[in-house]
């Protein structure tokens, strides 16, 4: 009898593995966690897209729940994302943009063409702030609470279906 149970062992191991493989099917292997969740938004001092002489820093994100969107003119999905960002702005979400590895001229042209839902755009031509945020592909969106702590991250572009979810997340941290 003991031996019979031993012979069942390979089957049990396989069933265990099969369970995880099944669970794996429903997961997205290219999804990544942000290392910055529940962390303070990294410190920075940069100019804005609108004004080369202006200086903004992390205090910009204090006192209000803010959605920080990393975007660039050269990123095609950022164009797709714009209508959703405009909807979010209309629904009262405060949006701050990070213009990532771009030039001022191109960035402004982009906003003129596709609309500007942002209160202000942080100009990050070398991608230094993006690197601190662990940005690996644009667009990426961070939700920062009133204490300047990152609470939620959305990688890739916000689809029309994602809007409700983002609004909910914003509501949660208000």
């Amino acid at each position: 009898m003991k031996r019979r149970l031993l012979l069942l062992f390979p089957l049990l191991v396989f069933l265990g593995l099969g369970f995880f493989l099944y669970r794996g099917l429903a997961m997205d292997p290219s999804a990544r966690d942000s290392a910055l969740l529940a962390q303070q938004f990294p410190a920075f001092t940069l100019s804005t897209l609108e004004d080369p002489d202006a200086r903004v820093d992390e205090s910009l994100l204090l006192e209000q729940v803010t959605l920080v969107n990393v975007w660039a003119e050269w990123c095609p999905t950022c164009k797709e994302e714009m209508p959703q960002l405009l909807t979010l702005a209309e629904r009262g979400v405060r949006l701050v943009g990070i213009n990532y590895k771009d030039t001022r001229v191109k960035g402004r042209e982009f906003l003129d063409e596709f609309g500007d839902p942002f209160e202000v755009n942080i100009f990050d031509p070398d991608g230094d702030l993006g690197f601190e945020l662990g940005v690996y592909g644009v667009p990426e969106t961070f939700l920062v609470d009133a204490e300047g702590i990152i609470r939620y991250k959305h990688t890739g572009y916000i689809t029309p279906e994602d809007v409700e979810r983002v609004v909910q997340e914003v509501g949660k941290w208000r």
Binding site: R4, L7, L8, P10, L11, F14, L15, G18
Partner: peptide
């Protein structure tokens, strides 16, 4: 695999 391991057991 399940069937063959069952047969084996």
């Amino acid at each position: 695999v399940g069937a063959s391991l069952l047969i084996f057991a």
